[in-house]
Amino acid sequence: MTNKVLNYYDLSEIISARIERNEYLPGELLPTEKDFISRYNISRQTTRKAIELLKEEGYVRSVQGQGTFVEKINHSKVAFGVINESDNASFTSLVRKFGIEISSKLLATGAIDSNRFFSSKLEIGLDETIFGIHRIRYGNREPLAIEYTYLPLKFFEDINKHNFEHVSLYDYMATKEHLPLNFREKFIMTQANAKIAKYLGLTDDLTVNKMEITGFDSENNIVEFTESYSRPDKLEVRFVTK
């Protein structure tokens, strides 16, 4: 094994594995190029390419004149937005597949009068009422996303009797025969506002994923409009068509 000459990819794999095993800790200075060159008997170019790749993958970050630092760990990254015709978009079901313990905390729920914004998103009248559910989603007890979900109250009149910290919203919607089956999504990266940054624990870089999800039931009624803000370092957004 030791006789084999390492290429840049091998080196990047060695380093990323160490970061994932917490041998190199977030914020720690990575060994210098020189260290890697003498330790593995490789060229400067190989070392540089490996570091560039680690930067692209978000494992490390270079600071001019100081060196290369280990970034926040990436191994808890989970996929989000894996939606296709057969799956539904429930956050819990999506993320559960990746073996992460998911929990939610309710921030607020309640009925409000619709306005022009919500009426256009939910395609309902201005005189109608909507029901909002604001939740923080945790993966392994770390905040991953904050979700603002709005439903037309007319389809879910007893919604106030349920606590969606423990009951799946989609299970409930299915009992009302208004389970969203088709989705339209819009994704952007934007800046977290102060409140969202606080909930998600963002301090330095405030870039967040924002996904707007519109859910249609079997009769093509819009039954859900969700604005989800998630941490790009924790959630990887995927679009999959099978």
Binding site: Q64, M189, R238, V240, T241
Partner: peptide, 30 residues
């Protein structure tokens, strides 16, 4: 037709920061 896409956050390295005319380690969408 099958497709598999993902979007993540990356940070500019030195060559990309000069290409984009922005500072190094600026967030980029990948």
């Amino acid at each position: 037709i099958k497709s598999n896409q993902k979007i993540t956050l990356a940070y500019t390295n030195s060559s990309d920061s000069s290409l984009f005319g922005i500072e190094e380690n600026t967030p980029l969408l990948r």
